Amino acid sequence: MTNNQAKKLYQTGIELLSCGKSNEAINYFREAVEADPFCVDAQLELGYILGLMENYEEALNSFNKAIIIEKTFPALFSKGICLFFLEEYEKSFEAFMEAQEIGENEDMWYYMGSIYLIHYGNCEGAINCFQNAISIDEDFIEAWNDLGVAYSILNDDENALMCFEESLNIDPEYKESIYNIGATLADMERYEESLKYLDQTLESDSDHFKALFYKGNVLYFMGKEEKAVEYFIMALNVDKSQEELWNYLGYIQYSLGQNHEAIESLNEAIKLNGEFETAYINLGNVYLDLGKNNHALDCFKRVLEISPDNEEALKFIEFGESQSTDCEGSNEN
């Protein structure tokens, strides 16, 4: 085929695409690049459709071929997007930086901010990128939300709350920000307000793990321990692999006098994380309450193996070793 034939195939693909016939269009774009591998427009369109179909490896191949023909912002930016979704964050960042030498858009800044947040843990860098995205598009709801997340990680709750509220000004039903406002208000100890947003999240998604977990915490701090236990158990029915949640549940069960249930919960936390210092301390205190001092001693010794300077464990070890525990066996069944 000639270059003109490749262009005709490309044009037919564009017409089909405009009619919403993506599956048919992709065949014409494939034929166009087979006829003329240097048809950059067809390479780009093929990459775009493959990306929308989440076929990122093949899409990346098309964008790389387009870049060989000509380094353009769309090709480099799209390469960065593919690499982002393939979780090759460093290569993705490099592609975005190269694209930035040619141009920029709000999406590029957003994804660069996400890489800073997800991969590098650099909240300041993420904040700068999200702010750049918003400066280009002030209604970029995802950028507002993720900007709030970055502020939350930095414990800047006031700015985080402002960002999440900006998201809801754009879309009052935006689920991510509804939950994030609830969590942020809880962190700010504004518990009654927090429940409004957490409940709104659970109304739309009753299995929202984080909302269940946070609501349990809020109820505990409001002095509603039994209700807190209910929500922690509901959260565990969604995801049993969270050692922090097992630890919280065990601690509250202990505070309610449910010592045997607390032991089960705290042991689950320790199974998930054998270095979980706080869970060992809580378990040691439960055993003390039951009069099982030798078991408690074992827990506090384990704490000192993990953290030799732990004051609570040191005090108990010092006290326990000065006491006789010969009569303890009669308390254990």
Score class of each variant (00 low, 15 high):
4 N>C: 04
4 N>E: 14
11 Q>I: 14
15 E>S: 12
16 L>W: 12
18 S>Q: 15
29 F>E: 06
31 E>F: 09
39 C>T: 01
50 L>A: 03
50 L>W: 13
56 Y>D: 03
79 K>Y: 07
80 G>H: 05
80 G>A: 04
87 E>M: 11
90 E>S: 09
97 M>Q: 13
99 A>K: 05
112 M>P: 00
129 C>V: 08
133 A>I: 04
138 E>F: 09
146 D>P: 00
149 V>A: 09
151 Y>R: 03
156 D>H: 10
164 F>P: 00
168 L>D: 01
169 N>P: 00
171 D>T: 04
173 E>R: 11
174 Y>L: 04
186 A>N: 08
200 Q>V: 08
210 K>F: 13
221 F>V: 05
226 E>I: 08
228 A>L: 08
233 I>E: 11
238 V>W: 08
240 K>A: 13
241 S>M: 08
254 Y>T: 03
254 Y>G: 02
257 G>A: 05
258 Q>W: 02
259 N>Q: 10
259 N>S: 10
264 E>A: 05
264 E>I: 03
266 L>R: 00
272 L>G: 00
274 G>W: 07
276 F>H: 11
291 G>R: 05
300 F>M: 07
305 E>A: 06
306 I>A: 08
308 P>M: 12
312 E>D: 07
313 A>W: 12
322 S>I: 10
323 Q>A: 09
324 S>Q: 05
